[in-house]
Nucleic acid binder design. Structure first.
Lengths: 251, 251
DNA sequence: CGATGTATTGACATTGATCAATTGGGGTGG
DNA sequence: CCACCCCAATTGATCAATGTCAATACATCG
């Protein structure tokens, strides 16, 4: 496994660290008592990654669950043809690495798309955490739950038949995920390449380009290289006529 | 939520129940002590479902994680236009219901494809279980891990470009899942309709029919209504591996 | 400022969706 | 037990949408 620059955190550092973490409310929505936070000491580890750096590769011996603190990453598998299939993008507050629990080795590869910081949770520590900090256990389950909903959203994108819908849905879901962590959802930074998006949506990258251009010509968005501005959210929703009910915010 | 015929199990019944369960080694691979099994008493609940019966619907207040004991089920979401998108099929030993943890309501619907029996795990009980039966906590994580791997396999199917690959992969993965629970993997019972398969693979159901016929004409499988026999597993692998792409991919 | 890889745009070919007709099974009632 | 019916599945013909190939424009990074 590719190693990042990591360090174990002592009690005091951790408490401060988690309290200052930008995704605290996602990772630990329930207020943890100071004592509970202390118990986490020694279990957690924070690590930084540079763009393109691998967190782990397919087949690597597993051992950790990861939660994104800052930055963004992609996970993928390589097919027999040597073709790379993107399985997901990981934004702050989101989890990955669970696919390695069952077989003791990761079933996919993960690499950073930009400078990123991750929070590591060793599998072994989870049992201890679960038994000693029950509220954290519930929070972990919630993060896993969100991850599964995101996977379902991915399926919804891939099953949208007209390519324009897939791309529009992609933009919308990305904006939603930005909003969830309190970021302005109308200005997106596409940290992944067009080819990554294309693979994620099961389209040719030329098609992704064309559809983005089409959305821009319709006045719905504005794209300049890796910056994307949503001009007309309502219009986007109209395009994705098949927008799944489950994706809409509580109403 | 639609109610099945359920009953709470006392200690003794549960112990026998779990010990006789066909998916014991999937659900609880690590041997549990008798005392641990006893502690599960009162937390677990078993329920039977008839074909087409709903376990829950999108928007239902959540509360349980489900593990399949016998039978098979499908989960789906309905789009605004009334179109049904299949998210997954659930076989014995597999888990579902996690998508309801975060928002306190299920984000999808689930219904039985045949007479099925489910094991219910209330969210609330999970914390207790985790703290009192640590080994079970780890097993739960493994079942979740398998579920995520299955979701990734689903994405791989949907991203396979030629339709024949998607269907071939579908058959292979289904056989694999049968094999995992000790069933002969060459004889499959398709409990779901062609339309369900089509939705799952993001294809038209006519295309699924055509591809199954094509696989049969090639002598790789034998399909009669809902029974599918794999005649040439190697041949299937070659199709998913080399079909049309290998002719053009020069890498 | 130049070089290399990424993104866009265009032209064409092909796959799979759509529409339509037919067959086939499983369930129900006579 | 058989016959009917209805829904599921198969098969066929056509065409639009998107993948593929190719060339150009554009950033980013050295």
């Amino acid at each position: 496994m590719t190693q990042g620059s990591g360090k174990l955190l002592d009690f005091e550092t951790l408490r401060k660290s988690c309290r200052r973490c930008s995704v605290l409310e996602l990772c630990l929505p329930a207020p943890l008592e100071g004592a509970d936070l202390d118990r986490l000491g020694g279990m957690l580890c924070s690590r930084s990654y540079t763009p393109n750096q691998h967190v782990y590769n397919t087949g690597d011996r597993s051992g950790n669950i990861y939660i994104v603190r800052t930055g963004s990453l992609k996970s993928w598998v390589t097919t027999i043809h040597g073709h790379e299939q993107i399985l997901g993008f990981h934004l702050p507050g989101e989890i990955f690495g669970l696919d390695g629990v069952d077989a003791f080795q990761y079933q996919s590869g993960v690499q950073a798309l930009e400078p990123s910081e991750l929070c590591l949770l060793p599998y072994d520590a989870l049992e201890t955490i679960a038994s000693q900090v029950p509220s954290l256990h519930r929070q972990l389950l919630r993060v896993i739950s969100r991850e599964i909903v995101i996977e379902h959203e991915h399926v919804m994108m891939m099953s949208s038949r007209p390519a324009i819908e897939r791309v529009a849905l992609f933009v919308q879901v990305l904006a939603q995920r930005e909003a969830l962590r309190g970021q302005p959802p109308q200005l997106l930074k596409l940290t992944m390449s067009r080819a990554d998006i294309a693979s994620y949506l099961a389209l040719a990258n030329e098609t992704v380009s064309r559809m983005l251009s089409r959305l821009e010509q319709s006045g719905l968005i504005r794209v300049t290289h890796r910056k994307l501005e949503i001009l007309d959210p309502e219009g986007l929703i109209e395009i994705t006529g098949e927008y799944p009910v489950s994706l809409r915010l509580a109403d």
